[in-house]
Computed example of a mutant assay.
Amino acid sequence: MRLQTLIVRYTAFAVIASFVNLFSQRVILLMGQSLPYFVTAVVVGTLGGLVVKYYLDKRWIFFDHKKGLRHDSRQFSLYAVMGVFTTAIFWGFETVFWLIWQSHFLREIGAIIGLTIGYVLKYHLDKRYVFSPHG
């Protein structure tokens, strides 16, 4: 795949996963504004975005067509583990922006910055450890 195509696809998939993430958060935060709602929103949004991004990356970025519960379970587990560090970056930016400005708009700006940094790192980790030809 050409580099330009890779960048366009990966960016589009990151935008789709980010939308799923932030939309999920917003729906939960409509139910309440307290800390438990915030934590629930961040966790649910992150999980939703992770699942969507995994399936898009698997099929359209890394062209991995291997199937089977055992393979997919192992691969998704690795994918999720690689995301722990990058998720900490995302959560860190989102939380800091929320704590400083107490604004949902700026919380989402922080989330977008954190997600962008995290996705760039995640691509390289996934390419090397999750979807490698040796995996």
Rank of each mutant, 00 (worst) to 15 (best):
V27L: 15
D57L: 03
V27K: 06
G114R: 01
K67H: 11
H71Y: 15
F23Y: 13
R128N: 05
H104M: 11
W60P: 00
Y79E: 02
I109H: 05
K122R: 14
G45I: 12
G48C: 05
I61D: 09
V120D: 06
V8K: 10
R9M: 08
I109E: 02
Q33V: 10
K67L: 09
R9F: 12
R107Q: 13
V44N: 00
T40R: 00
K66M: 09
T95Q: 11
R128Y: 13
S18F: 15
R59V: 10
I109F: 12
M31H: 06
D57C: 12
L69M: 12
G68I: 06
V20P: 01
F62Q: 02
K67Q: 12
L47A: 14
R59C: 01
D64F: 07
L125A: 14
K58T: 08
F97Q: 02
V81F: 14
M82I: 01
F90N: 14
T116E: 01
G83H: 06
G68A: 00
L3G: 05
T11F: 13
H124T: 10
V120G: 07
T86E: 06
G92S: 06
E94H: 01
V20D: 03
L78A: 08
V27W: 10
S77L: 15
I16L: 13
E108Y: 15
T95I: 14
L56C: 11
A17M: 03
L56D: 08
V120A: 10
G110Y: 10
F90G: 06
V130N: 07
S132W: 04
S132K: 07
P133C: 04
T46F: 12
K127G: 12
M82C: 15
L78D: 05
G118D: 06
W60N: 04
T11M: 09
F62K: 05
A80Q: 04
Y10M: 04
K66I: 06
D72G: 01
L6P: 02
V130D: 06
W101L: 07
V15D: 09
L22S: 04
L78V: 05
H124G: 14
R9I: 07
L3H: 14
F23A: 13
Y37M: 09
L30I: 03
L50S: 03
S18I: 12
M31Q: 13
E94D: 01
Q102L: 08
Y123W: 11
V42W: 01
Y119H: 03
T40V: 05
H104P: 10
